[in-house]
């Protein structure tokens, strides 16, 4: 183990980790919003949009992110739509993640009993108010495990950003490997870096889910 090599390149890995985390989170945030909107369209059966959302979900869930990225970054500019590498990253993650988030939110929303909506009506809340104060919190509690799983999934998917020439964690490692050798050191640092990013997210997820269970919502985990 060449420790001097490792210590010399820690800054590179921190830089890469920051890119991975930042864009991972942008992707998570945007796809969560998109997913929530899509799921509401589906659950509340909005006429035309419902078909559009359905088509979108099918398209995004049946194509690999890698192919989407190549198309966005190298294909679209040829017909005049030129997105920056960072934009492609976020658009790609959002396109992919939106479908998964939509499914998660949808199952969360559908798990909330109809009677909750009716009860809201009974006490004089409008539909938007009912959704906001009664339905969504419960839906979120049910959907939480899936949402956090998607979050971890999306952060892991950022490992493909080398095709956009973005210096994410994977690209930092790959560049070091091809220019200097020292494969074992590079790969070790790579593994540690990903664990360092994802472990806190996973712990956070468990904490949030546990708190929601305490409040009486969500799954009573048996296994």
């Amino acid at each position: 183990m060449d420790w001097s090599f490792i210590s010399a390149h820690v800054p590179d890995f921190i830089g890469g980790a920051w890119v991975t985390l930042r864009f991972g989170l942008y992707g998570v945030a945007c796809s969560a919003i998109l997913g929530l909107l899509c799921s509401m369209v589906q659950v509340f059966r909005v006429p035309v949009l419902r078909a559009v959302v359905r088509g979108y979900v099918e398209l995004s869930r049946n194509t690999p992110l890698l192919v989407q990225l190549f198309f966005l970054y190298a294909g679209l500019p040829r017909i005049g739509i030129r997105l920056s590498a960072e934009a492609c990253a976020v658009v790609g993650l959002t396109f992919l993640g939106g479908g998964y988030m939509a499914e998660a939110f949808r199952s969360g929303l559908e798990a909330v009993d109809r009677s909750q909506r009716e009860a809201g009506e009974c006490i004089g809340l409008t539909l938007p108010q009912t959704v906001r104060y009664v339905v969504l919190p419960q839906a979120f509690a049910t959907a939480a495990p899936a949402l956090f799983a998607n979050m971890i999934f999306l952060i892991k998917e950022t490992s493909m950003f080398s095709v956009l020439a973005m210096m994410d964690l994977m690209n930092v490692a790959d560049t070091l490997r091809t220019s200097g050798g020292r494969t074992i050191e590079v790969l070790s640092m790579l593994v540690i870096a990903y664990v360092a990013i994802l472990l806190p997210v996973s712990v956070l997820a468990t904490l949030v889910e546990r708190r929601m269970r305490y409040a009486g919502f969500g799954h009573q985990h048996s296994v």
């Binding site: 971890i152 892991k156 998917e157 490992s159 493909m160 994977m170 490692a173 790959d174 490997r177 494969t183 074992i184 790969l187 790579l190 593994v191 990903y194 664990v195 994802l198 472990l199 996973s202």
Partner: peptide, 18 residues
């Protein structure tokens, strides 16, 4: 859960080879 598949791929293809 914690490793992107690409990293695992690198570990086996480049790491184990070395």
């Amino acid at each position: 859960r914690f490793m992107p598949q690409l990293v695992l791929l690198y570990l086996v293809y480049f790491g184990f080879a070395r």
